[in-house]
């Protein structure tokens, strides 16, 4: 199968808005952090011999399209992106904005919320150790808890730290994307 790049208008609109509003240095650092995160995933996929079919860019973020994987591989691949983000902290003296965005992206992605990396990793880890029904139920409950935490964090950032509306928009988008697995799990 040919490798494909699938770009959604939602992603383009989000990146366009960020490009319009943020200074070059900030936008560049954010973009570099996102690329570093995805490269982490891609590197582990290649190392584990998983087929990489393409890249999907959507309003909620980037997603690598892969061939079928077992749960152990899925767990490792899901954790590879956040690991790359943490490794980026090594460059904090030379590229501080890049390191800070990588840290923020890692923290966000580690939320146990489907389809973020934390949600994928948690589900894969649970499915490795527990019966499927129990694993899906725990994963869905963790998703609900993560949504509540995300909503609280977003309100704190927007109201208390005057970070604008983006945390609320991001939290709303993440919760909406996560909604179908809740229904399946519960």
């Amino acid at each position: 199968m040919a490798r494909r790049l699938d770009v959604g208008p939602g992603w383009a609109a989000m990146m366009g808005l960020l490009f319009y509003l943020c200074p070059d240095r900030v936008f560049g650092a954010f973009l570099a952090a996102a690329v570093c995160h995805e490269l982490g995933h891609a590197a582990v996929l290649v190392l584990l011999g998983v087929r990489l079919d393409g890249l999907r860019l959507r309003l909620g973020g980037a997603e690598l399209v892969t061939g079928p994987m077992d749960y152990r591989r899925e767990l490792l691949c899901a954790l590879a992106g956040p690991a790359a983000g943490l490794a980026a902290l090594l460059a904090r003296r030379r590229f501080p904005a890049f390191a800070l965005f990588s840290l923020a992206l890692t923290a966000y992605n580690l939320l146990p919320l489907w389809p973020l990396d934390g949600g994928r990793a948690l589900r894969a880890a649970l499915l490795l150790t527990l019966p499927e029904q129990t694993a899906r139920r725990i994963s869905a409950l963790a998703g609900i808890a993560a949504c509540l935490a995300l909503a609280a964090g977003a309100l704190y950032l927007s109201i208390r730290l005057h970070a604008g509306l983006w945390p609320v928009l991001l939290a709303a988008l993440s919760c909406l994307r996560a909604a179908p697995p809740w229904k399946n799990g519960l």
């Binding site: 808005l17 200074p23 030379r94 501080p96 005057h162 604008g164």
Partner: peptide, 21 residues
């Protein structure tokens, strides 16, 4: 100011990156 925060947020972020650097 509505989407990503005002000048204070930008100034605080600049200071944050400088202190990390």
């Amino acid at each position: 100011p509505w989407i990503v925060g005002g000048g204070r947020t930008a100034a605080a972020f600049r200071e944050l990156t400088e202190s990390v650097q």
